[in-house]
Design a protein around this nucleic acid. Sequence first.
DNA 1: ACACCCAATGCACAGGTGTGCATAAACGCC
DNA 2: GGCGTTTATGCACACCTGTGCATTGGGTGT
Lengths: 342, 342
Amino acid sequence: MQRRAVSISDIAKAAGVSHSTVSRALRDSPLISAAVRGRIQAIAREMGYMPNEIAQSLQTQRTRTIGLVVPSIADPFFADVFDGVEQVARAAGLSVFVSAAHNDPEQEMAAIETFHRRRVDGVLISSSRLSSPFLKRLNDIRVPVVLINMQAEAQHEHVHSVMIDDRAGACAAVEHLIQLGHRRIGYLGVSNRPLSNQRRLAGYREALQDAGVGMNDDWIVIAPEEDRQYRDDVVAGETLVHVLVEAGVTAIFCYNDMVAIGALMGCREHTIAVPDELSVVGFDDNHVARYVTPPLTTVHQPKLELGKQGMRMLIDLIDERDVQSTMLAPTLVVRASTAAPR
Amino acid sequence: MQRRAVSISDIAKAAGVSHSTVSRALRDSPLISAAVRGRIQAIAREMGYMPNEIAQSLQTQRTRTIGLVVPSIADPFFADVFDGVEQVARAAGLSVFVSAAHNDPEQEMAAIETFHRRRVDGVLISSSRLSSPFLKRLNDIRVPVVLINMQAEAQHEHVHSVMIDDRAGACAAVEHLIQLGHRRIGYLGVSNRPLSNQRRLAGYREALQDAGVGMNDDWIVIAPEEDRQYRDDVVAGETLVHVLVEAGVTAIFCYNDMVAIGALMGCREHTIAVPDELSVVGFDDNHVARYVTPPLTTVHQPKLELGKQGMRMLIDLIDERDVQSTMLAPTLVVRASTAAPR
DNA sequence: ACACCCAATGCACAGGTGTGCATAAACGCC
DNA sequence: GGCGTTTATGCACACCTGTGCATTGGGTGT
């Protein structure tokens, strides 16, 4: 049924020329006379010719293809990153393979092995944590790699990164609370994403210190590690917020929006009014943040830009241009979950 | 720098055999003696050989690759669909190209053209609407196509589909409201996705008719067409909900969750208590639905399953097995936005 | 008229892999 | 030991495209 697709040889036969001539004519080579070129292009169009990119890839040693590894595309954060990646890739004529690794090292390995077999021109990785054997493997495939929003443990020749300044974002959030007049500010963090949690906690501390506002170890609560992180962030916020309230804080900065949303739910259960009795700040600016009650004040991560920048950087690396790792600045979005303390 | 990757010829040279022998040995062909096979496999491992899938594709005329077209991966609906697709694809050893077409016919065309050039083994399409020239083009590429949650205008030889029963879902939602005791029930729809809107409206009417509950044209409001649908769904719900309330309904069934969330916001602005004064039902069971206030009663779409089924169907088509289009049943999820009328 | 040059085209190979067929070696059988 | 049979391997081609080099033909200059 599915008869062979038409190749340049078929066109050559139809036009009474050699396949080389067809190849050149279709690529607008000046070596071919205008008359012949036009005739061949017309025949090609008429026969419904569609270039075989597989054969081209084999010949040119370039697949015009890149691979993207994410934990899950169902997580809106990575979905936005992907959107940015895809936009830039499409504009550059590159196609992208997406692989969801679900934070499973084994699946991550499998993903980059697949990319290697498929001879992608470059790899983008956006994963929470990355293991050392994984990085070694990355080095094996001899292809440019860009890390999105993750910190490389060691520097490798072909590895660059674009990330978001967690510390600065946390600072901005806490400074906002200080400016509103809060002096007893808590942090509600997580333990299953240690790097970013540490950076946000550091920003929290720095802001307080710079402003000369007091700290207290009782005002810092870190949720214990859990497996199903996505749902659990909400549960963590919901169950732990009252600990901070009992410790006497008037405002809390949460590791991310899902924790903050959990905190909002916890407050409702304990009939704590937000923002009247407690101000709550999140991190990420998840799509959800604007629809909860009250709409959440949060730190906006430029996720789309993260993807775009990462992809641009990868293209530069593929084309052997110099690049340097960059850091994107998050911005505070003030909504209705924060107010001056009573 | 990036020296040529090792090929089977390199291995052949190292082992003192022909490349054919290496090829067969690596594929565990019984034609090769166990001794030689083992030795070659050892050498291959040692040299860090990674099969070139591009060359294999050219030879076998199979790329083990499929293309997925969606409007946007940032829309959580399609993100979940993708997740299902990816899971099944990975298990079958297929890689997936994702292309976001943003409901732009031109970009959709470009996407399937790219897939054609790359000689994907099959195509999955999940788009709101599909134009007729687009379908024609689909037919041109001579590859199995599965439509996910969209209705084909005409039947084509290679085109099958898996969809969700909009009508049944709408019925379930409205029956729930009737069972709670509501007798004046409104529908808040959209006009930029005419097919599914019609089907949900039909389900709404059917449920009312079957229960012998009265209808009224004033209780049906359809938002006018807008371009930026995603954000506008919320705005539509927010601005139009009071029209229905003034028409005297005690409950509304919304086209989807975003419209319903807009309705919730509109109610808050007009200080209409939900669910005490007005019950609200959505459609989709977006991730957001559980976090709004009050948590939204809605019709759950099995999005993951949609993706999985679609991918399974595509694999069956690729392997030339018989398949038939299927319809998945949505289920009602009762949360806190619905209650008996006062 | 002849040498020369330039424009246009074809030949042949390369890229990496899989496989039908031929070939060679080994083995069993009488 | 010759012959037929099985087993193991190599040869050569195919998949489709791009390109260096050779070739051809026509035009130009003297």
